[in-house]
Computed example of a mutant assay.
Amino acid sequence: MILTLVPDIMDVPADRWDALSAQAGFYLSHRWLSAQQHDPTARVRYALVHDEGRLIAAAPLYVVDTEPNDLYRVHEIVPGRAPGRTVLAGARRGYLNAPLLHPRLTPDRRREALGRLVAASRSLAAAEQAQPWWLYVTDAAAAELADVCNAVPVQLNQDARIPLPGSTFDDYLAGLPSKRRVTIRRERRAFAEAGYELRTLRLSECADAAGALAAQLQGRHGHPADPGFMAALLREQAEGMADTGIVHAAYAENRMIAFSLFYLHADTVWIRSTGYEYAQLRGAHEYFNLVYYLPIEYAYAHGATALHLGMESLRAKTFRGAVTSALWAVDGS
C-alpha cells in the first residue's frame, strides 16, 4: 500500500473518490469537499492510499487555523479537553463522518488501509503541533478507529434519517402509527390552506432572500448571524456545488417567508439549511412541511429512499419516522 497526500481534491478523479464515499454520505462526496476546500479557516490535505494502482482508502485532513463553528471545537464538545490546535480527519462540515475504505477489502487489508490514514493524520498533526481528531463518526467507523487508535470513543450526538419505503407519500405514512398519521395529515392540510405560493428554485436564484431567513433562524437559537454573511455563504455554496441544491420556498405577497435547502445524493435527500421570517408566518406548521413533508414528496418523485435530517430535535424527527444512530469523537493520536 502506498500513502500519498495531495493538496487539491481535483487531483483525484471524482468517480474514484466517490466509489469510496458513496456509502459514507453527501458530506464526504467529491463535489461537497471540493466546494469546502477553499474555506480560509483551515488548510486541507487529502490522504490517499493506493494498492496496485487502485484507490482503496482516503480521508481529507484539515489543519484548523480558526474554527467558527463551536460544534467542531474539540474542547467544547469533548469533556476534559483543553483548547489547542487540531487536525480534523474526515468531513469538517455536516456532522456525519467516516474514513473512506473500499467496500471489498478483506478485514485485514481494511485495517491496514485504515492504519495508513490514521498514520497520515498523526504525521500531519505532529508537523503542525496539533492534535488529530475524528469527529461525528458513525458507530461502525468509531469501532474501527477505536481499535486502530487504541482510543475510547466519546458520544457526541445522534444522527437521524427517515427511511422511505414504497413509492409514494402514502407508503411513508403507512409505516407510522395511526395517531402520527393523523397529526401529519393535519399539519399538511393546515399548510395547504395557509395560502402560501410555493416555489421550487435553484439556490443561485434566491441566495440573498434565503440568507436573510437563515440569519433569523440562527438568531432565534442564540447564534446571531449577519444576513449579508449568510447570503454570501449560500452564494458560495451554490457556486461550489454547481447549483445542484434545491430550494422549496413559501412566498406571501411575492416575498419569501420560509425555505428549505436540500441536495439529492446517492438515493438520499439531504436537508442542508432552512430559515423563516417568523413575524410573517401563519401558524401553518411551516417547518415540518418545508423540512419533512415537501422533501419527502421530492424524494419519492426522484426515486430516493431516505431523507437525511441530521442532529438535534430528535423527538420531532423520530415522531415522524426517523431512525437514529450515535455519532462519536475518536482521539486519533
Rank of each mutant, 00 (worst) to 15 (best):
L33Y: 05
Y196Q: 13
L135E: 08
L234E: 06
G94D: 11
D15T: 07
M256K: 05
R54A: 11
G245A: 13
Y27Q: 03
A142E: 12
A301K: 07
A146C: 08
Q37T: 04
D18Q: 07
I246Y: 03
F319M: 14
D51T: 01
A299I: 09
G303M: 06
T200N: 04
A82S: 12
V323Q: 13
H265C: 12
H30Q: 01
E128C: 06
Y136S: 12
Q23E: 12
A119M: 05
R104C: 02
R73G: 13
R199W: 06
F229K: 07
Y298R: 04
L55F: 08
H285F: 15
L156D: 12
R272A: 13
I162T: 00
A316C: 01
R220Y: 15
Q216W: 07
I162A: 01
A249Q: 07
L5C: 10
G240Q: 14
L176R: 07
E236M: 10
L314A: 08
A249V: 10
T4H: 01
L105K: 01
E112A: 14
S29D: 01
L327G: 03
T41A: 08
Q37V: 05
R116T: 11
R110D: 09
E277H: 14
V118D: 01
L88Y: 08
A126S: 11
T86A: 15
A215S: 11
W133K: 09
N157R: 10
R85N: 15
F229P: 00
V137K: 04
A299E: 06
L117V: 04
Q131Y: 10
W134Y: 15
A299W: 02
A24R: 01
R122Q: 13
I296Y: 01
A242R: 14
T66W: 11
L201Y: 04
L96D: 03
Q237D: 10
A329G: 08
H285E: 09
L173G: 02
R202M: 08
L309W: 07
A306K: 01
D159P: 00
L203C: 09
M1N: 02
A160W: 02
T183Y: 05
A120Y: 00
V152E: 15
R122P: 02
G228R: 10
V12E: 11
L213P: 00
G175W: 09
L28S: 08
Y95W: 11
L176Y: 06
M10L: 13
D70Y: 05
L201H: 02
Y62L: 14
A113C: 08
A192I: 09
V330G: 12
L114Q: 10
I9Y: 05
S123N: 10
R199S: 03
A215G: 13
Y172R: 05
V148M: 08
A58M: 04
A47L: 06
H75S: 09
A210Y: 02
A194H: 06
S260H: 01
A225P: 02
D243F: 08
V78R: 00
R73N: 09
D70W: 12
V118I: 04
D170E: 14
